[in-house]
Design a protein around this nucleic acid. Structure first.
Lengths: 158, 158
DNA sequence: GCTGATAGTCAGCAGTGCTGACGATCGATT
DNA sequence: AATCGATCGTCAGCACTGCTGACTATCAGC
């Protein structure tokens, strides 16, 4: 793609900036993680599984913000690489508990180092305090309530 | 989708934050622009065409950061809505000059107001100075040179 | 008049994310 | 215990994007 510098009309539009920042980061991420045989989404799955014990597929999907049908493929791929394993929950046999294998834990550890290094490079054009503020600002807009589906005032919906 | 609050392990990962910030903004954008019959990408096309005279499809695609094959469909859609028109360049008959129609200019004006209002709401959780810094920080990482394709030092490649 | 490069178009493919359906299982009710 | 509605995982199929590769028309240089 012929990638011009962002023209003035677009460089202050949030849509353009967020999209292209995300695309840029995705490329860097793919490059940084390639040696470990996983991509950024898979690494996030490993991280979530490592941080919580006994997560079912659906619970993990909820934390990751992906659809449960998407989670199937994600776990399939990681299981194929023997980084996680499925195990039916004895308490509720509808659930697949997904656990890191020892290899998965090790891979997570290595890849996390690479990811942090990649993010450091990505944020290099910013001062340390600006970088920290960027992260805080993003966290803030991401977790603030959406104006989206006309909010129901019916308490039963919560 | 069951959208949990971002779990701690993910809320400091740039990939997660940029992706979800972008998704959130996309939803808001679609909602805000729906009354005008266009989406965010189409609005960006109109804005770029308005800011530069006599752009060919390829030139506009370059400014937008989209592929030329994608640009075909984008212009098709806008032409179908009679917001832009194609016209062969007399100077170079390979080129399609894309111009705003008067209706396109008017639609752009209206939709821009809606977009700005939407962005204002989106950034509401941030203070004014934090919002401005977020935009500047994003612009900075987006336009900083990528580590990507092993940079050729051969001047002929430029 | 050739030749190589460029602009627009189209068909086809890959990645992603969704919907809708299904079987298995659960919890509650009767 | 038989039944009913809901939940979890799975899969097929669709839509949307964005790309590659091929093709035509056109250009610029020789």
């Amino acid at each position: 793609m012929t990638r011009d510098a962002p023209p003035e009309v677009l460089s202050s539009r949030l849509g353009y900036l967020l999209k292209h920042a995300y695309l840029r980061l995705s490329e860097e991420s793919a490059r940084a993680l390639a040696p470990y045989g996983i991509d950024g989404r898979e690494l996030a799955v490993l991280a979530v599984l490592d941080a919580h014990d006994e997560l079912s597929q659906l619970e993990a999907a909820g934390k990751l913000g992906v659809d449960r049908t998407t989670m199937v493929g994600l776990v399939d791929a990681l299981e194929g690489k023997e980084l996680v394993e499925r195990r039916r929950s004895p308490q509720d046999r509808r659930k697949n508990i997904v656990r890191l294998t020892p290899a998965g834990r090790e891979r997570l550890r290595e890849a996390e180092v690479a990811r942090q290094e990649m993010e450091r490079r990505f944020l290099a054009p910013l001062s340390g305090s600006d970088a920290a503020l960027l992260v805080r600002a993003l966290r803030s807009v991401v977790s603030s309530p959406s104006s989206a589906p006309p909010p129901s005032l019916n308490p039963r919906d919560q």
